[in-house]
């Protein structure tokens, strides 16, 4: 139940962000979606056994499913690479929604004057 709610929250936030304008928000949306999918994968193994699968200290009869953990571990690192790539794209934009800021929030007025 708790895992499912977490996945739902992360998906909702991710979807909201990826349909906004500007690469940075899309990137952040992807980060949230990545979290959601990773939790979903772990949930696939089951959340009823929560002992770490370290055989030196845990008995095989109570350890959590190691297979989704292995999948998620590499998925996290790949998601990181994708995030960096998307941020790179956000950083090379010339004239788009990312380089045109919104109305000033606190402090920005000063910056524009400087």
């Amino acid at each position: 139940m708790t895992l499912a709610i977490s996945v739902g929250l992360l998906v909702a936030g991710g979807v909201y962000l990826v349909v906004q304008r500007g690469m940075v928000r899309i990137t952040f949306g992807f980060v949230l979606l990545g979290h959601a999918v990773n939790l979903l994968l772990v949930s696939g193994g089951g959340a009823f056994r929560r002992e770490a699968p370290l055989m030196s200290e845990t008995d095989a009869s109570v350890a959590a499913d190691p297979l989704p953990q292995a999948f998620v571990l590499t998925a996290i690192v790949i998601a990181f690479a994708i995030t960096v790539y998307m941020l790179t794209l956000a950083g090379v934009g010339k004239r788009d929604d990312d380089t045109r800021g919104g109305p000033a929030v606190s402090g920005e007025k000063d910056e524009e004057k400087a």
Partner: peptide
Amino acid sequence: RLPRSFHPTGRVRRAAAAVLAI
């Protein structure tokens, strides 16, 4: 390298995005 705040989005897009997100 980017402006401090996001480019603002219109109300319609926000509402549509919220519905889709929920």
